[in-house]
Design a protein around this nucleic acid. Sequence first.
DNA 1: AGAAAAATGAGGTACGTACATCATTTTTTG
DNA 2: CAAAAAATGATGTACGTACCTCATTTTTCT
Lengths: 341, 341
Amino acid sequence: MIVPTTKDLAEAAGVSLATVDRVLNDRPNVSQKTRDKVQAAIEQIGFVRNLAAVNLLRNKPYRFRFILPKRGDLYLKELIQQVEHANKSLRSDMTFADVEQLDMGDPHLVANYISSIDPSDLDGLAIMAPESPPVRDAISRLNERGVHIVQFLSAQENLEQLDFVGVNNYAAGATAAKIVGKFSGSKSGSIMIISETMLSSDSIERRHGFDAVINARFENLRPLPSLETYGEVSRAKRIVGNQLEHCDDIVGVYIMSSEARIPIEVICEKLNLNDITVVVHERTPFSEAALKNDQIDAIIAQNPGHAVRSALRILRARSEAREPNSAQESIRIEILLDENL
Amino acid sequence: MIVPTTKDLAEAAGVSLATVDRVLNDRPNVSQKTRDKVQAAIEQIGFVRNLAAVNLLRNKPYRFRFILPKRGDLYLKELIQQVEHANKSLRSDMTFADVEQLDMGDPHLVANYISSIDPSDLDGLAIMAPESPPVRDAISRLNERGVHIVQFLSAQENLEQLDFVGVNNYAAGATAAKIVGKFSGSKSGSIMIISETMLSSDSIERRHGFDAVINARFENLRPLPSLETYGEVSRAKRIVGNQLEHCDDIVGVYIMSSEARIPIEVICEKLNLNDITVVVHERTPFSEAALKNDQIDAIIAQNPGHAVRSALRILRARSEAREPNSAQESIRIEILLDENL
DNA sequence: AGAAAAATGAGGTACGTACATCATTTTTTG
DNA sequence: CAAAAAATGATGTACGTACCTCATTTTTCT
């Protein structure tokens, strides 16, 4: 099998290599007639640029950075590992990725960090940060200065023109609701809903999706107000314990944050987990074990490896002025049961 | 950022480029001392082969072929489209993929086709074929003649040494059972199980997984004997209709084959699909629509795009004598509900 | 017609690696 | 200690494309 080169293309089009080069790379001083001739020849012989040759010629290292929260759960840890792994396996591809962890509690700190980035040091940024105007503006400005941006797992409002990698959180909440609802059978009762904070749009969207499905299809179930742990162990214990005291008809639990350990431990003390349906977010060593132990019923997950690789592929494509292959880059809302883990 | 080249490596190791080449490519006539010195320098400066340069130099087109059934359902159609799509988008990577459809009813025909393949025409084969000794032997022999093989979505027994792309069908059946069981709530009754044929190991494994979970966890449910449609419309209508006549306590349906349309139509006539739980395999335009219409409750799916790309990545890696990145290549058992479609 | 402008051709260099050949140095062997 | 063998160095070519310069031809304008 012979793969046509630019030389073959020149021959087929009846022009010189220089002209082929002018057409392929959109250089001036080519007549329309010649452009058409070359274009026709491209179709006819099925010419495709040899990516290896182009990359070799460019031979530019692509430097990408993930901005992630400083404090976080096991899922965050998993994400960081995935970035490190990708960094290793993509080195031969001239793609370099690292992680910068910032305190997301301080939007100005995050914004300042983003603003301080020198575009000549970095080709692209994948950023996971809570919504906030200063952050959003800093992202916009950095993007205008030529750094490609991917909104990673959590999106900023009004930045729809930027690429996004992650799931639809409304749908994720709806999916959780469907499972809680269906798994509860004909039982009636309340559903405990636990979040780290309801300030993030992710949590809000999940909650909306959850409520929509419960209200539309499961009249027997009553979602309780969201409990916010703020990521604090003692607070989590207190508020969860509190709700357990005052509410005796709990038939399901939906944990929207990816840190499920503390709430589950507390619930475990008062209720028999076999009698209620528990759905949590994100696959972590803990949630995996809990699924196997029958402590929880389902995990709603977005694969961290996919997410990282997808973000890097998109950044790479943008850096080379290619369109990302959108079909490949959508992240699925995975439902994990004991059986398909 | 400077990416070290072989030249830098030579300098760092204090040897010539020729010696670096000898070490990197395992050529003879290098003292152990020198090998160690170069190896140490590789670690120290973090040298990695530039893949683009290697590929350019090799500059060999890789030709891969998918062997798929001739007759089939919408999922098969989807697979073929994915191969075609991959073929287009991988052309710039010197990877070519096509599809050969064979009549899988005739194992000798399949075996003959495989045996007739000239290894100099083809670098790798992804094969989806029912188990049969002649086919298995033909695959083995072709592999020995230097053609890389991936068992695609369906495996042959005793060919564990070959790569496999696809899901664990026992787990897939178990997952379906869990959903049917949980979604049925406290109802008691029978579960209709429909397959194209129970001769394939895929179906057998799915059935085993299904029964194991139902028997272990859902005493209230009784799986009926498998109905085999043989892919014939009239037969499907007859046997499904028949079972519906004789069995009046059906609370769930599990369709193991990826052609669900006919059975669902028949069931629809006699039963209210809202009262029973229906689980089918594979995402197709039909199953997707059925999920949205609430005709079915869940789809157990393996993403055809992932499967095709994974098979191609594995074949490519094998062709270049690299180990495939196994973490990336496992195909998940996806659970699709209306909400996470 | 003649000058200016546009279009095209011819040819070279570079990217990083693999592979080849030949010269030279170092080590091993008898 | 000399000859043979092993190790190392020096240098060149090739892969396909992008980008550059300069020469030549063709077209356009006055």
